Computed example of a mutant assay.
Amino acid sequence: MAIDAPTGVTVVSGAASTTDDVSYVDWPAIFAGILLASAISVVFISFGSAIGLNFLDFDGEGASPIWIAIAAASWFLWVQISSFMAGGYLTGRLRRRHFDATEHESDVRDGAHGLLVWAGAAVLGTIIAIGGIGAAVSTAGNVVATATNAASNAADVSVDPNAYFIDTLFRSNQPAAGGDISAVRDEAGRIFAQAALGDGTIAADDKTYLANVVAANTGLTPEEASARVDQVAAAVNDARLKAIETARIARNTGIIGAFLIAASLLISAIGAYWAAQKGGNHRDDETVFADVFRRF
C-alpha cells in the first residue's frame, strides 16, 4: 500500500529509501538537541544563581531562606522542563523522516527522538553535577561534624573511646588545685563529650566531680561551682540539639529535593516527547515562523 507524503514534501525514491540497513534513529539530530538543552540549562541556571545571590544577606536582613529556596526550586524546574522541550523540538525539526511510515508512526518516532534527547541530556547533566553534589555533601558533612565537635567541646575522643571510663577509674576524691589544669580540662571535655554522644545528660557522679574540680581551681563556692557546671551542661546539650535539628532539616530537604527532581524529570520527559512531535509536525508542514523570525 502506497503512503502519500505530506503536502509540499518531496519523496526521494531509490535504493537508499528502501534498504533495510537505514536506521530510523537520527543521531546527529539527537546530539543537536542534547547540546541545545544542556546549553540552555547552563545559561539560565547560572543567570538564576546570579540573581539569587543578590537576595542573600549574611547579616540576617535579606529575604527569607524559605522563600529563596522556593524561588530557586521553581526556577530550576522551569529551566529544566523548558530546556528539554527546546532540545526535543529541535531534534524533531531536524530529524530526517522516512516516508515508509504513516503519519501516526512518524509522530511516534519524532517523540521517541525527543525521549532520547531527554535521556542523553539527563545523563550528561548527572555526570556534570556529580562533582557539585559530592562537594555539597562533603561540605554538609563538615558542617555537621563541626557542630558535633562544638557540642561535645572535647578533645579527639575518637582516638581512645575508653578514655572517659579510664578517667573514672583513676579519679581522685580530692581534686588538685592550682598549677597546670590542662589535664583537668581535658578530662572535663571527655565528660561532656560522653554526654553529647548519649542523650545529653551528665551523670550525677560526673556533675559532683566537675563541681569539686571547678571549685578547687576557680575559688568558687561549691554551690556556685555546681551552678556553673549545670549552666555549661545545658549549653552543651542545646548545641547538641541544634546539631541534631540541623541534620534532620538537611535530611528532609534532601528527601524533598530528590522527589522534586524525579517529578520534574518525568514531566520533562513528557514535554520533550510532545515538543519533538510538534517539531516534526512543523517540519512536515514547512512552518517557518515568518511572524516571529522576520527578515529585515
Rank of each mutant, 00 (worst) to 15 (best):
residue 35 L to D: 06
residue 137 V to P: 00
residue 230 D to A: 15
residue 218 T to A: 00
residue 85 M to D: 06
residue 213 V to S: 10
residue 161 P to G: 01
residue 238 D to Q: 13
residue 14 G to Q: 12
residue 64 S to I: 01
residue 23 S to H: 09
residue 258 A to I: 10
residue 125 G to T: 14
residue 66 I to N: 10
residue 242 K to G: 02
residue 21 D to V: 04
residue 267 I to Q: 05
residue 91 T to N: 09
residue 22 V to E: 09
residue 160 D to M: 03
residue 247 A to W: 02
residue 281 N to I: 03
residue 42 V to D: 07
residue 140 A to N: 12
residue 248 R to S: 14
residue 128 I to C: 09
residue 80 Q to I: 04
residue 131 G to Y: 08
residue 103 E to L: 02
residue 64 S to E: 03
residue 79 V to C: 11
residue 295 R to G: 11
residue 242 K to T: 03
residue 115 L to M: 11
residue 33 G to D: 00
residue 33 G to S: 13
residue 204 A to D: 15
residue 117 V to N: 00
residue 9 V to Y: 06
residue 4 D to T: 07
residue 69 A to P: 11
residue 92 G to P: 04
residue 123 V to M: 12
residue 95 R to N: 10
residue 17 S to N: 15
residue 19 T to E: 05
residue 13 S to A: 04
residue 180 D to P: 12
residue 85 M to Y: 05
residue 113 H to M: 09
residue 243 A to E: 02
residue 294 R to S: 15
residue 45 I to P: 00
residue 210 L to P: 12
residue 32 A to M: 14
residue 53 L to A: 05
residue 20 D to G: 12
residue 237 N to A: 10
residue 175 P to Q: 12
residue 257 G to K: 04
residue 206 D to Y: 04
residue 222 P to N: 15
residue 282 H to W: 10
residue 213 V to M: 07
residue 98 H to A: 06
residue 79 V to N: 11
residue 96 R to I: 07
residue 255 I to Q: 04
residue 72 A to R: 09
residue 93 R to V: 07
residue 72 A to C: 08
residue 108 V to N: 14
residue 10 T to P: 06
residue 3 I to G: 15
residue 202 I to S: 05
residue 210 L to T: 03
residue 231 Q to T: 15
residue 215 A to T: 02
residue 8 G to C: 03
residue 250 A to F: 07
residue 36 L to G: 11
residue 262 A to I: 13
residue 257 G to Y: 05
residue 53 L to M: 14
residue 208 T to H: 09
residue 173 N to R: 07
residue 30 I to W: 14
residue 191 I to M: 15
residue 269 A to D: 10
residue 127 I to M: 10
residue 83 S to K: 01
residue 46 S to Q: 15
residue 203 A to R: 15
residue 179 G to S: 04
residue 71 A to Y: 06
residue 119 A to G: 07
residue 134 G to V: 00
residue 215 A to N: 08
residue 56 L to P: 08
residue 20 D to K: 05
residue 236 V to R: 10
residue 195 A to Q: 11
residue 123 V to L: 11
residue 94 L to E: 06
residue 278 K to R: 15
residue 266 L to T: 03
residue 5 A to V: 01
residue 5 A to Q: 14
residue 194 Q to K: 06
residue 39 A to D: 06
residue 208 T to N: 07
residue 295 R to W: 06
residue 156 D to I: 13
residue 194 Q to W: 05
residue 261 I to V: 04
residue 10 T to Q: 12
